[in-house]
Design a protein around this nucleic acid. Structure first.
Length: 782
DNA sequence: GCGATCAGCT
DNA sequence: CACAGCTGATCGC
């Protein structure tokens, strides 16, 4: 039997500013436990704290609310009970995603009381079907086996194009074929004929050299080089530099542009990414400055200002000069001058300014790259290869250590930690492995859109979670899971190729964003498929429902593992056994020794016991925080163990129906508020006591005490000691912060990295900058 | 009116 | 701090 925790202090709430809360207090009995402190004044006694070996009896006796009518009787085997499901869960045919068994890792460990209860629950997962797309319904799939057939069929259909030459049937495939050659030595190479030598970029380079030469072409030694011929032009006046650059520009255009043009620098990171038929790609004679400007304007969707540009005879030079003063002042272009020529709307002005700014940065980066690389046309990929070749040479002694120092078995390899540039491109070093700058037409305040390293898969033409950086040079887009920060930028107008993801994620992408199923390719967990010549296998990332980590194996044997967001589980080492991972793109959210939180089972146990302890008051409302998806395991286990239904709103139910839960699991959810006093709410509503008080006020008649659980990994960070939770209280509102994390702890990351033993680690998160990230990652292998 | 995007906020 | 969002303002269609 669970003991009611002993609380320090028993004073009556004395908060002067808590009158409203005090008014909710139902009785002196309750009041004696509300000391009003906002401190961690709650101590679970040792016998209860983390007592995961103690059998936890499933009970609803501690919770005074009468059970819902349809609640199954307590049973050792709830999964086999003949339970009449509530109507909202039982009407549709069932499907199995096979992706997400919410209690999979709980089932894997029998030591916890939670698990002991779950041991007898069938592991089959057949979820109640949601409305997730016509193809599913048209197949009339009803059983798990048939679902496998469906998935196979769908996948076969999906990959039909691949079998016939990988997307050969589509326009995108042709584009891809004409533009990109995948070479197994890694990298994407611009094909002849696609990148034109007399591109707009050259014009922009000119602009750059004119308007901002010092910024664009300054090398590491502070010398100023011509972006075209790399000659040192430091000694020249600005005017002379312009003259020189113009001469170079003219020379380059007068030369035959085809084969050996500098503009064909293979895999240059800075080419403007536009479709082949885009007017921008085909500027007319460079000497005719007017036409490219107008085409550029049109490409921005601002054709209506063509007249203005014609009237004002605006060419690139003029456009640049309109903002030149601003450039000199603070490098930020303001739209005032555009206003003066008659572009009165703020939107178009911003659009022009941002596009120009982005293009200018493009040109600057290109010029800088040339400046740094001289005329040898060293591509990023080549630099990258060079880096790899010199892997044994310590590049950053403080951050990089030879993997052989830590893994004696690795005779030749060394783990290198790459600094992953911040998205805002504060780090100006070029990104590697074919990651290019993306020119987006919608402005983003002039920030350049550098595809971060972690969004690229070295040696492949793939992007992962990179919808913020959509470019036309890529048509294979992977999505590891359905969290906003990973699918941001993805809209239903997506037309850049295929999206590869798990079935659960595909359902969500289809339902929530409206991506048609034709654009979605479902990846089966554990099944190797070949995409564009690369073997691709995905595994359950144990992060949120549908989350996957993806293994890419190129024909040259180089393997890249992209973890996505993940929480380490021991099964992962089994999946990856035998795979030699060259590059590990790692979720480093909690890559800091201060983040050492307990296993999810322990936190679930803590929450269960806390609910039992607080439930002596029958008028208690429990709130559990959750994301759009995520934390489901927590509240589902709470429901199972406490034999209590959980209230979720209808929108959330619709979402949960996509996640692959079993019928048995789904029975624990209800959309009828009165059926449950445990509610799932968005995590942010629990963030402050102010919000919690609003909730309390709404339920004044029904509930006199609010107990909220805020599950987040950050709870255990910084100065907070490792514990399964801490309790905060203000009046009749109690908030538990519990370190329930769906990311790996530092300890888990270290274990994972040691098992994978990669040659190179690319961190996906730089909370404190790339150097700090590199330093932290280096700790993983120490 | 609707969808997309972004800044500000938790 | 900021996990992974939410909200409201703005803009274009």
């Amino acid at each position: 039997m669970i003991k009611v925790p002993v609380r320090k202090g028993s004073g009556v709430n004395a908060h002067s500013n808590e009158e409203d809360a005090l008014s909710l207090l139902p009785s002196p009995e309750l009041m004696q436990f509300t000391d009003g402190d906002d401190d961690d004044d709650f101590q679970i006694p040792p016998s209860t704290q983390l007592s995961i070996r103690k059998p936890l009896q499933p009970t609803n006796r501690n919770i005074s609310q009468p059970p819902p009518k349809k609640k199954p009787r307590l049973s050792r085997n709830p999964g086999k009970e003949n339970v009449a499901p509530t109507p909202e869960f039982s009407s549709d045919p069932d499907f199995s995603s096979g992706n997400y068994a919410p209690s999979a890792d709980l089932l894997g460990s029998s030591s916890t009381p939670v698990c002991s209860l779950l041991d007898c629950i069938p592991s089959s997962v057949d979820c109640s079907a949601g409305d997730f797309g016509e193809p599913v319904y048209s197949l009339g799939v009803e059983t798990e086996d048939e679902q496998v057939l469906f998935d196979t069929k769908e996948r076969d259909d999906c990959f039909k194009a691949n079998r016939e030459g990988y997307l050969c049937n589509s326009m995108e495939a042709r584009l891809l074929k004409s533009r990109i050659q995948l070479r197994f030595d890694g990298g994407i190479h611009e094909d002849e004929g696609f990148v034109e030598s007399d591109s707009e970029l050259d014009v922009l380079i000119k602009l750059c050299s004119e308007g901002n030469s010092g910024e664009c072409s300054v090398g590491k030694d502070d010398s100023i080089q011509c972006p075209l011929c790399s000659m040192d032009i430091s000694a020249l006046s600005e005017e002379q530099r312009q003259v020189h650059s113009n001469e170079c520009l003219d020379k380059s255009h007068n030369q035959a542009p085809e084969k050996d043009s500098p503009r064909k620098c293979e895999n240059s990171s800075s080419f403007i990414e536009e479709s082949v038929d885009d007017p921008v790609r085909h500027p007319q004679l460079v000497n005719d400055h007017l036409t490219p400007v107008l085409k550029w304007l049109r490409s921005l969707g601002l054709a209506k200002y063509e007249d203005v540009f014609r009237r004002e005879e605006i060419d690139w030079d003029t456009l640049q000069s309109l903002t030149e003063e601003d450039l000199r002042i603070d490098e930020v272009i303001t739209p005032q001058d555009l206003l003066s020529i008659g572009i009165t709307s703020l939107g178009p002005r911003k659009k022009i300014v941002n596009a120009l700014s982005t293009l200018r940065e493009e040109a600057c980066a290109e010029a800088q790259a040339r400046s740094l690389c001289g005329s040898s046309r060293v591509t990023e990929r080549q630099r990258d290869k060079s880096t790899n070749r010199k892997a044994s040479e310590p590049k950053k002694p403080t951050a990089n250590k030879l993997i052989t120092e830590f893994f004696p078995g690795q005779a030749t390899g060394s783990t290198k930690i790459r600094k992953s540039p911040k998205e805002t491109a504060t780090e100006k070093s070029p990104s590697d492995s074919g990651c290019r700058r993306a020119v987006r037409r919608n402005g983003n305040n002039g920030k350049s859109k550098v595809v971060p390293q972690w969004n690229c898969v070295p040696g492949t033409p793939f992007r992962v979670d990179a919808f913020k950086y959509l470019t036309r040079d890529c048509c294979h887009w992977f999505l590891t899971h359905f969290h906003l920060d990973h699918y941001q930028g993805l809209t239903k107008s997506f037309s850049h190729g295929k999206i590869y993801c798990s079935l659960v994620t595909a359902k969500l992408v289809n339902m929530k964003i409206g991506i048609p199923w034709e654009r979605l390719q479902v990846l089966q967990i554990g099944q190797k498929v070949n995409i564009a010549g690369i073997d691709v296998t995905c595994f359950d990332a144990n992060h949120c429902p549908g989350s996957i980590m993806i293994l890419f194996e190129a024909a040259n044997g180089k393997a890249v593992l992209q973890t996505g967001d993940f929480r380490y589980s021991e099964e992962m080492s089994n999946w990856l056994m035998g795979s030699h991972i060259s590059i590990l793109i790692l979720d480093t959210t909690y890559c800091n020794p201060q983040y050492d939180f307990p296993k999810q089972e322990a936190v679930i146990q803590f929450v269960v016991e806390a609910i039992q302890a607080e439930a002596f008051n029958p008028k208690t409302l429990f709130l559990i925080g959750s994301y759009t998806i995520g934390k489901e395991r927590l509240f589902l286990e709470v429901a199972r163990v406490l034999r209590e239904k959980i209230y979720i709103n209808p929108a959330k139910l619709k979402l949960l129906e996509c996640l692959g839960f079993s019928k048995e699991d789904m029975q624990w959810f209800t959309v009828k508020e009165e059926e449950s006093h445990i509610h799932v709410v968005p995590l942010w509503t629990l963030a402050s006591f102010k919000r919690l008080k609003h909730i309390a006020n709404r339920y004044t008649n029904r509930y006199s005490l609010i107990v909220a659980f805020s599950p987040t990994g950050w709870t255990s960070g910084k100065t907070k000691k490792k514990s399964p939770g801490r309790r905060l209280q203000q009046g009749t509102i109690i908030r538990y912060e519990v370190p329930y994390s769906e990311h790996s702890s530092f300890t888990e990351l270290r274990e994972f990295v040691q098992q994978v033993s990669p040659e190179v680690i690319i961190p996906s998160v730089n909370n404190d900058g790339p150097d700090a990230a590199a330093a932290m990652v280096s700790m993983l292998v120490s």
